[in-house]
Computed example of a mutant assay.
Amino acid sequence: MSLGDDHGYGSEPADRTDEGFGGMGQTRTRLPGGGDNDGYGGARRPVRSSRSLIMVVGVVVLLIAAIAFANQGGGDGTSADPAKGGPGTQPTAATGVKPVKGKAGGIPSGYAKDEQGAQSAAANYAVALGSDGMFKKGTRRDIVQTVHDPAIVDSLLGNLDPAYSPSFLANVGLKPDGTAPTGLTFISRTVPVGTKVTALKGDTATVEVWCTGLVGLAGPDSTKPVTETWFTMTENLKWVGHDWKIGSSSQREGPTPVSGDNRASSADEIAAAVQGYGGFTYAR
């Protein structure tokens, strides 16, 4: 969910009736060798001697030991330093500069003026703009002021406040003040899947953020169940006051993957998950 989104709840995932993997029939294995017919194609072969079994186990142990020794990264018994890009580096190890430490209004701030900093800023700003705080006037103002260029904040709020009208909020199941009805939990959370810089020059950058989102009301009597959405935000960033800020943004649908076969959780499970699992600070 973000600026310009119609806050729809998406289409129902297509029903899938995949058959289980493998068949239900039995498999018969013919063993080599002649002899009496036991109904399975031949007589059973003699059991290996204990000496042969010990030899096999010994070879396996030696192989495991050799692999473990090779993975130590050197003959001196010390592993290579991943930070120096040695053999100890893992494909999934964290890379790049350390994530930002600063926060403004609860939103990470203080990004580097480079491609990595622009991507980190865009991802974190997408999270903020897709949060449930956007549905309440006070927190919406705080979010907009924190992530946008100060020069456009007033005009942007002038357009957003009427958009989050009581009729719109009622359409998504909320009260006029943006809160959920008693007994229900409103959920609106955006999770960046990836980012891409499409332009970077001087004090400006354009970053695309591919996102998935959760939105809806969780509760026993909800008529707006929590569903997932997929969309891509394009943020045009400006370097203002020693940090990246949004000058303008847009959103388009997708890319959307095929829905999986996971069992849908109960409303209580969804509400407990969103309340119990906090979000992340995104930085590359």
Rank of each mutant, 00 (worst) to 15 (best):
E208Y: 10
S266A: 11
G133N: 09
G117Y: 01
V61K: 11
T223E: 09
L129T: 05
T185M: 04
G158N: 05
H242V: 06
D261P: 11
M134W: 01
Q119N: 09
Q72F: 07
K113N: 11
G25L: 12
D142C: 03
A180Q: 07
H148I: 09
T139C: 00
L31A: 11
K84N: 05
N124A: 07
K113P: 12
G183P: 08
R252L: 00
D149P: 12
G130S: 06
T204A: 03
S79D: 12
K224I: 04
F21V: 15
G74Q: 06
D154H: 14
G73C: 04
L62F: 02
S250I: 01
L62I: 00
M24L: 14
A271T: 02
S50N: 14
L169C: 09
G133C: 10
V209F: 00
F231R: 08
H7T: 15
G10F: 04
G86N: 10
G20K: 15
G130Y: 03
T195W: 00
L129P: 07
N71I: 10
I143V: 13
G33T: 12
Y282G: 11
A272P: 05
V127D: 11
Y277N: 14
R141F: 08
S109E: 07
N71C: 15
G276L: 04
L129Y: 08
T232G: 07
Y111I: 09
S266H: 11
G86F: 05
V258R: 13
A271R: 15
K84I: 05
V47K: 15
D5C: 13
G279M: 03
T89E: 12
D114G: 00
V240M: 05
A218P: 00
T27S: 13
S109W: 04
E235C: 12
G130A: 02
T92M: 10
A65K: 10
V197D: 03
A218K: 01
W244A: 04
G106H: 04
K137I: 13
R16F: 11
Y40G: 11
T139G: 07
K201Y: 10
